[in-house]
């Protein structure tokens, strides 16, 4: 099925009160974001660098363009987008980790190295972050959602507040504690040494 129509239908279900729709929405939004990322990479206009916020926003507009929509769906879409972006990035990190292991086995040509894009420094350990976030979600799901929306979808506090239907002050507090908690958790982890 075309992921777009799927997203539209699922959003409608969600609005109608089906809370499991969010989980079911995920694969469709995931595909949508991947497409959008590819499209934006292809364009990379002067005034337009690839930014998570822009990406999520464009993905939404794209969806809106293709379907009859209600602008209130945006909040619902964003709620899923954070989760979807998290999957996009963590999947990618896992694939890369696998590639690296494979690449060590054989020599990589000089050309390939030169063509490679600079690796972001310092490199984010998406996999460890994902695991930590999972544990935070077990303790306090809302704080994990705030992190997801802020880190992965690049959404501002005010909008996160609308999406989660809480006050902006609550989002600020959630963010502060979640940030401290994740940092403490990742540090402990780093000392233990994951790949």
């Amino acid at each position: 099925m075309d992921p777009r129509t799927d997203v539209t239908r699922l959003l409608a279900d969600w609005r109608a009160g089906d809370r499991t729709a969010a989980e079911r929405l995920l694969p469709a939004v995931y595909e949508q974001l991947r497409r959008e990322a590819a499209r934006q990479m292809a364009r990379e206009r002067a005034d337009h660098t690839l930014q998570p916020t822009g990406l999520v926003h464009e993905a939404w507009l794209d969806l809106a363009r293709e379907s009859r929509h209600d602008w209130n769906d945006r909040a619902h879409f964003l709620a899923v987008a954070g989760l979807a972006m998290r999957r996009v990035l963590v999947d990618h990190a896992q694939r890369r980790a696998a590639l690296k292991r494979g690449a060590n086995a054989r020599k990589v040509g000089l050309d390939a190295l030169e063509a490679a894009e600079p690796v972001p420094e310092p490199e984010t350990d998406w996999i460890a972050l994902d695991a930590a976030l999972e544990r935070l979600a077990a303790l306090d799901p809302r704080k994990a959602r705030v992190v997801e929306l802020r880190f992965f979808a690049g959404i501002e506090h005010a909008e996160i507040a609308r999406v989660l239907e809480v006050s902006e002050r609550t989002v600020e507090r959630d963010w502060r504690l979640a940030r401290a908690w994740l940092r403490a958790a990742l540090e402990t982890e780093g000392a233990g040494g994951t790949q």
Binding site: R34, A37, A38, Q40, M41, T49, L50, Q51, P52, T53, L55, M85, V88, L89, D91, H92, A93, R96, E117, P120, P122, E123, T124, D125, W126, A128, L129, F151, F152, G154, R176, L177, R179, A180, W181, L182, R183, A184, L186, E187, G190
Partner: peptide, 29 residues
């Protein structure tokens, strides 16, 4: 531990910033 982590000014720890997220996205794309 939480208070110490909170006192660290800005993201020197390996949490993604907009730029690193963008890089990873670009690589995915």
């Amino acid at each position: 531990a939480l208070l110490a982590a909170d006192a660290v000014p800005e993201d020197p720890f390996a949490l993604p910033s907009a730029a690193t997220t963008a890089e990873a996205l670009a690589a995915t794309a």
